[in-house]
Design a protein around this nucleic acid. Structure first.
Lengths: 231, 231
DNA sequence: CGATTGCCGACTGTCGACAGTTTTGCCACA
DNA sequence: TGTGGCAAAACTGTCGACAGTCGGCAATCG
């Protein structure tokens, strides 16, 4: 079984303009080069990137389906801005997906899965020790991707990936929540311990706590900035 | 709170070629005018529909994001074919979403929600009495949409809608499973009873049974036809 | 002085065209 | 008869262009 990666791509980067533009836009949005609510001009983007408008439009539609952009007819594309309610919904859905996943995973917990998850926690801890907040988030998400992956439902994993794209919209908020590296480590080891125990109740408790902490931090953050996607 | 509809649209129907093409393609796929695995030619479609290739491409990308089409680079778009495993995954995710939804709904079960759901069951029963299998499925899905809607998490509803698009891929399979109208009625009334009781355990049992029945029928059907999306 | 209306610029929606690639059909050859 | 290769056809990816539409600004009217 092939391990999932955050951005699976072919070995030789073919000249696929749509994907390249989509990657560029995604990175630009995550790094807040385009602010929430900001309008993206197709002509300007195509000028800046040196391509025509067609790939830009298709990439924008792709990002729209991922919830990073919103299109308004005859007005163009806008960077999505999550308000507090939408963010609560995102975390509620994440809880829904991960509860199910950890339950499924506990039913089929293989040594391979155990090994992979443990290794990823170590990678995550290493990342958490450094200063790159974005990398810490990505390694954290990758741990959860692995959980979903070994849960054995590809469709569930896709739903999770769709959700994480929206989570990345407020990645700067998350990176600001400096948790101590050992806190992160213990928080994830609790998940592994619950899986080792094989108890559904323990798994549920662990994942509820885990996501509850993340949710609390982020929702508090968005409440402070007063982010909103209202018209 | 506005009721959700399958296709909420503004009062004045704008001429939006992309959406029109997307609707056409969706219907054509659901009605099996395009068979699973079949290749869709952009030029042929644009000729048939009397539009240029640009709207066709964008509509196809939209349907790809909904899981109805699959694009292969430099090869074009193909109608997605779900194999048995993928279909199992779809129903597993549906179970995940609806368990969560009915749980959330039980926490905030308003008389308005109760009334709307009860009314929809009546509409469904009426549809089940008729001969239009597709309409029966749509009314059934609409009942579940209402559940998700009143559960109060828009993002959860979106995930469900994404999933139902894939469910429609094998709608002909589902329509073939002629359940008796009163079976359908009692099956849905059990959900309402569970919600009335307010017991999480009863809700979970009801939804598990409900989706389990649907899953059994469809997975059995796909096993018989030997549908597959392998190369 | 404030509200309304008409105009202007910019932009999106859509189109036809070209280049490179994949598929198909055919023919030569074993 | 089966197979390999070559050429033509068809198709996708990308591009630039045109028309209709939207938002903003200014001139006009009350």
């Amino acid at each position: 079984m092939a391990l999932p990666t955050a951005a699976p791509r072919p070995f030789i980067q073919q000249q696929n303009l749509v994907e390249q533009v989509a990657d560029y836009l995604t990175q630009a949005i995550i790094q807040q080069h385009f602010l929430p609510g900001e309008r993206l001009s197709e002509v300007q983007l195509s000028r800046d990137l040196g391509v025509s408008r067609a790939p830009v439009r298709e990439a924008a539609r792709l990002l729209e389906s991922r919830g990073l952009l919103i299109s308004k007819p005859r007005r163009g594309f806008f960077v999505r801005a999550l308000n507090a309610v939408e963010l609560e919904d995102v975390f509620d859905l994440r809880l829904c997906l991960e509860r199910h996943a950890i339950h499924r995973l506990a039913e089929r917990y293989t040594p391979e899965a155990q090994r992979a998850l443990k290794q990823q926690v170590e990678v995550l801890c290493e990342a958490a020790a450094g200063n790159d907040g974005t990398r810490r988030i990505e390694e954290d998400l990758q741990f959860h991707r692995l959980m979903l992956h070994y849960a054995g439902n590809e469709r569930l994993l896709r739903a999770f990936d769709d959700l994480t794209h929206e989570l990345r919209l407020c990645i700067t908020l998350i990176t600001k929540t400096h948790e101590a590296p050992d806190t992160i480590a213990t928080s994830h080891y609790k998940l592994l311990d619950a899986l080792d125990s094989g108890s559904p109740a323990a798994c549920r408790e662990a994942i509820d706590y885990h996501i509850g902490v993340a949710r609390k931090f982020v929702v508090k953050g968005v409440g402070e900035t007063g982010d909103s996607s209202d018209e």
